[in-house]
Design a protein around this nucleic acid. Structure first.
Length: 256
DNA sequence: ATGGTAGTCTAACTA
């Protein structure tokens, strides 16, 4: 089972790229973030023609998440329990016996800002939700744009980024709470990886060309699935395409 | 020093 996660920064703009990437990589599941599309405008038919059934929760201009799957997603949930939020940032569903939780973690803007506080509170609610899902399901995968780089090796210049949003102590501690705390595994780090392989590069100042990136797009696995993981990577190719998303897809394969 | 680009939508926000 091949599972991928991609922040597309507008599904409307990136639909041709999503279709091309699906045809090329043939994942069983593609989790999307920042679709920026209301539900009544979601491209259901185009994706069905590509061989995928979608579940989605979106809004105009901002946020929006979706899961595309070869077999129809079941038991869909679109709310973070105990955290009333108009922003469409989570979707969970079950595909082929795997419980998928797809998240678009708040960016946080700047350490100490209101949005940073919202990010930390949001992550606490996510922690509680994942704990419940892990208690109910053996096979759990959490995909998404976490807007947090886990380790120094996931940041092009960790000293310059220390203390900044996306790499500050409290955010990293919240992410560690999901990893060490809940027993999830960052599948990317199960395998030997090239140095400086990232998943997001700011559109500005030629960041991609200079590889000034961060690895913030993650695929986390419960113990049973971590044992079944056979490969994990980031596919840089779509970031090289014309008019790209600022993120590249993260990919993980499982032998089930 | 507080930029630079992209998306949504024409003013300003979010990232």
């Amino acid at each position: 089972m091949k599972i991928a996660s991609w922040n597309v920064n507008s599904l409307k703009v990136r639909l041709p790229q999503v279709k091309a990437w699906l045809a090329e990589q043939a994942p069983d599941v593609l989790a999307l973030q920042e679709t920026k599309v209301p539900d009544d405008q979601f491209p259901v038919r185009a994706l069905q023609e590509a061989g995928y059934t979608a579940c989605y929760t979106g809004q105009r201009t901002y946020n929006g998440v979706a899961v595309l799957a070869r077999s129809a997603p079941a038991d869909v949930a679109t709310e973070l329990p105990g955290f009333a939020d108009a922003q469409r940032r989570v979707i969970a569903c079950t595909v082929a016996g795997v419980r998928l939780i797809n998240v678009y973690v708040p960016n946080g803007q700047a350490v100490g800002s209101e949005k940073y506080d919202y990010k930390l509170r949001w992550l606490e609610a996510l922690h509680r939700w994942i704990a419940d899902e892990l208690a109910a399901h053996e096979r759990v995968v959490v995909t998404g744009d976490f807007n947090i780089a886990p380790q120094p090796a996931d940041v092009h210049d960790p000293e310059a980024w220390a203390g900044s949003v996306l790499f500050s102590e409290r955010e990293r501690a919240a992410l560690q709470g999901l990893l060490a705390g809940l027993g999830l595994t960052d599948t990317f780090r199960l395998f030997e990886q090239p140095e400086a392989l990232f998943s997001w590069w700011d559109y500005r100042v030629n960041s991609f060309k200079r590889n000034r990136g961060l690895r913030i797009d993650l695929i986390l696995a419960s113990p049973a699935l971590a044992r079944a993981c056979t490969a994990a990577s980031v596919d840089l190719e779509p970031r090289r395409w014309e008019r790209p998303s600022d993120h590249a897809p993260a990919v993980a394969a499982f032998e089930l």
